[in-house]
Nucleic acid binder design. Sequence first.
DNA 1: TTGAGTTACGAAACCGGTTTCGTCAATCCC
DNA 2: GGGATTGACGAAACCGGTTTCGTAACTCAA
Lengths: 367, 367
Amino acid sequence: MTDSIAKKQTEPRAGNKLKISDLAKHLGLSKGTVSRALSGYPDIAVATRERVTKAARDLGYRPTSSAQALSTGLARSAALILSVSGDSVQKAYLPDFLDGASTRLGKDNWTLTVATASPEQDDIAVHKRLIEERKVDGFIITRTRRADPRVALMKELGVPFVMYGRMKEMEGCPYFDFSGEDAMHDAVVHLAGLGHRRIGFIGARDAFFMQELRAEGFAAGMKAAGLGPQPELMRTGGMTEAAGEELAIGLLAEPEPPTAIVCAMDVAALGAYRAVRAAELEVGREVSIMSYDGIGEGAYAQPPLTTFSVDTRAGGYALADLLLARIGGAPAESLRRLDPAKLIARGSDRPPAISSEDLARRLSARR
Amino acid sequence: MTDSIAKKQTEPRAGNKLKISDLAKHLGLSKGTVSRALSGYPDIAVATRERVTKAARDLGYRPTSSAQALSTGLARSAALILSVSGDSVQKAYLPDFLDGASTRLGKDNWTLTVATASPEQDDIAVHKRLIEERKVDGFIITRTRRADPRVALMKELGVPFVMYGRMKEMEGCPYFDFSGEDAMHDAVVHLAGLGHRRIGFIGARDAFFMQELRAEGFAAGMKAAGLGPQPELMRTGGMTEAAGEELAIGLLAEPEPPTAIVCAMDVAALGAYRAVRAAELEVGREVSIMSYDGIGEGAYAQPPLTTFSVDTRAGGYALADLLLARIGGAPAESLRRLDPAKLIARGSDRPPAISSEDLARRLSARR
DNA sequence: TTGAGTTACGAAACCGGTTTCGTCAATCCC
DNA sequence: GGGATTGACGAAACCGGTTTCGTAACTCAA
């Protein structure tokens, strides 16, 4: 209408983004040549490559991720889907895990894409959306379940993924995990070495595969220590403090109560503390406790909890590393890592101050 | 070499992604028309639009995010940068916050992009990278500092952002925050109403702006309750359990000790519990305690901690909401929300069982 | 019947990169 | 010295969408 100065409307947000064609013009080259120079193609003269990379650095050129993603098919992003279960166990490990994973990704200038699966938008739908939109290049799957539909989906669609934890059927599944079974084994052997003969076990819920592994590790430890199986001292379902307390009370009510208890999870161990104290016993004297996880509260318990600590940050880091390798084309079977949990010796494991029989007597006297 | 069946190499991962041109061909339309139909342009016949949307739904068409981002300039993603401070305070609130934010973003089919700023790759560099790569459309800035360089960067580059918490200078800054000052105020008034006359305050570190606000709220509450200022009972620096314990010990050593203590953070309150118990006093009898944050441990303390709980999930949700509005073009000044923290009445606040003088006597008798 | 005004769509440019292909000039070899 | 190779780069197609612009076909009024 007025005149023809209606040109500069195409300014979305920040005005002057340096694009590859600008850089090419500045250098007197074609943009294709610049692109290849920056990607290290061999058909570019060394002098030219250096000139280009220097100019790119000086002028602060950075390829636009969406353009790069469109032509390469790589979004340079890994997905992590949160399940809004309100699960406090998940909550505790998430920050460190996130830190580790996104730190590793950041080293390659990748990012972590986080989405939540809510009851309305279910798990699988969220995964599908991200895949179909091609918004991510692969998935980190946490809290894997026995027959996990997410894993099935990934396999069906050929989308790269890595698992935190193991499953029953793991063909074609890259994973990272901490060896809970070894920790349980070592805990038993250690306690037996201290002189304990009756050793209880408070496991997680049976629905979890890791519980299966840990129970096996415990049993293997009993055998290795020359102690027969004591099935009456093995309880499961201890995934909260309250449950741990309840299960420990049950163990102490046994005719031949344990002088030591191995817990599959720290939260349960803290519950066991309460049960022991309620029986007017001292943790680390009449009843030793060893556990697994390494949560912060354990250090502040009285006595401080001896536990196998899981380096969640390292786990996140390792999983991101594996996923990048997987996306890079490495075969799934080569991408499996099982790290040991690290024993943090504190004050809850000591030689028994009392035998199982005497313990039983003291306990029944109180009743 | 062999023959010419070397065609199907251009298959990155999953083979058969439905693209808009396929959909157009299927419908006998041009891809431009299909795009406009899906975007709801008015120059498309109603019948056509319905035919297109139905086909898109039936065939499960989803636009490729990178292509869309390239042409629209919107990545449909919000950034959250983690500072790898190892800060346990940050850790505690992160999962809920993340859940809230990404839930809100997911409703609009956006995602949350998480990156970490490590010592090597500093904060500002990480922010710049994401901006220059155009990988995100805006930032959620947490743990805002007094003169925050991130905020300065966003303003300079014209990048949309929202803050969790407030600052001294907030021109052009959208934010969400919980009113810690109101909570402190109400806590004092409540305690005064129960009969307390000497009320102590354990604040956070002075470096934080929220501490300034909470201290003001506390002072305002004292005034509103008709109690004069008691500066000797106001301490700061309580951001860990140990620090809280230390500061509480100091308060109890005063000539006229407080019969109630208001803490700016729950962790400090739990420390204060220890100090009170160590003095052979009972929390909620000789010394009442009210606090702020709503961490899980508070519910398990003896007695359960009365505190103003912050709904972190709602905070994340609100911030994502504000950021989307901001990116949508809403003026910064219209995007400010201050929500009240919610009082969770439990057992640590009761009428004083003893006067400040008697309390002083009992305490000095113990020494 | 005709010309102006709508309506509904197709064609094509564009977003900012990557990659294939072709070509010119320099080099090599006999 | 001339044909075959090689080196280094430009041109153009392509990734999969969005948006502008142009234009047939249809509507309507005179």
